[in-house]
Simulated scan of single mutants.
Amino acid sequence: MAVGRSKKVLTNILRDKLSKRLEGWRGKILSRGGKKVLLKGERIRNIRLSANTVHDEWYWSAEKDGVFTVRKAYRLMAGGCEFLEVGGASIWEREKWLWSRLWKIAVWPRVKLFFCQLCSEALATRENTATRVRGESSFCSFCNSSFESSLHLFWDWGVVHRVCERLGLEGDEDAYGGGVRDWVKARWREFGRRECGWFMVGCWALWEHRNKVIFEGREVDPNCVVKRVRDVMEEIDGGD
């Protein structure tokens, strides 16, 4: 007579064997992972710590001593990506006279800030606005035939020549190399300090008049610009 085992008993035996086998595999995997953790832990414990207590500090990378200065920050913003050494001297050093003279001109601070934006190509001309606002036209609001860049607005716009003629600020048309900053430097070399003040206020008044024409529906009037420049300069001279 054969002695058999019930299905339940056989199932329990197989389950126990499989459980032991799985536990063995799991133990091997865990042991491998544990060894890695232990090795990392040993390496961390073997790192030598400094006996000196050093505190974290802020460091301004644009200065050798790590101290932040507004002067350096201004130079970086004014020069932008052009703050590089070219031919042994940085572009900032080569154009330092331009910015130094700008701040020494006796005009309103708002005019100086405007002129900094002009020289840095940072004015909200239609050409600059079109690069930031989708669907915005970059053509000039007045001639509608050229891109409204800073140079176009302050050099090619017909009103400019009439204003400069009335104010006696006409210069050599071929004295600049094609950029706004080159154009300004050419005027800086031609004019004395007083004429530079009139030139700066003239550009500022043109920009003010341009905005009034576009946003307030004013008529283009060179005489209005000339009067505005003369009134401002008279007020500045009276304040001195």
Rank of each mutant, 00 (worst) to 15 (best):
C81I: 01
V159D: 06
F114N: 11
E173D: 13
E93S: 06
Y59S: 08
E127D: 15
L118D: 03
Y176F: 13
G88D: 00
V159S: 10
E148D: 13
C116L: 07
Q117P: 05
V159T: 02
K72D: 09
W99T: 02
R75H: 05
I105N: 06
C116F: 08
E57L: 05
E95H: 07
G168T: 04
E82L: 08
S150K: 04
E57N: 00
W108C: 04
K96C: 05
H161A: 14
W155D: 04
S149G: 15
A78L: 07
L118C: 07
H161W: 10
G88K: 14
L84A: 10
I105V: 15
L167H: 03
F114T: 01
S100H: 11
F68T: 02
E95I: 01
N46E: 15
E127L: 06
F83C: 13
E57F: 04
K72C: 11
L113W: 07
S120R: 15
G177Q: 03
R166T: 10
N52G: 01
A106C: 09
V160S: 13
E173W: 09
L167P: 06
S145L: 05
E93D: 15
V86S: 10
E82K: 10
G66P: 06
R110Y: 05
R75K: 09
D156T: 01
W92H: 06
L153Y: 08
L151T: 06
L169H: 03
K104T: 07
S50E: 13
A73R: 04
F142V: 02
E165C: 13
L102I: 07
T69C: 08
S145H: 02
E165N: 14
C140K: 14
Y59V: 00
A130C: 03
N46R: 10
P109M: 01
W92A: 00
A124Q: 14
S146C: 08
I47K: 15
A73Q: 07
H55S: 15
A124W: 11
F68R: 11
R94Y: 00
S138P: 13
Q117N: 01
W58E: 14
V163I: 12
R126E: 14
A175E: 10
H161I: 07
R71L: 08
E148I: 01
G177F: 00
S90V: 00
D172K: 09
G79I: 02
S149N: 13
D174A: 05
D156R: 02
S138W: 14
I91C: 03
W99Q: 03
F147R: 14
W103A: 03
E127R: 13
K96V: 02
L153G: 08
V67A: 11
C116G: 08
S146T: 04
I105W: 11
F115V: 12
R48N: 06
N144Y: 09
W58V: 13
G158P: 13
G135A: 00
E85T: 00
G177W: 12
Y176W: 12
T125Q: 04
G171A: 14
V107Y: 13
H152P: 06
I44E: 10
D65P: 14
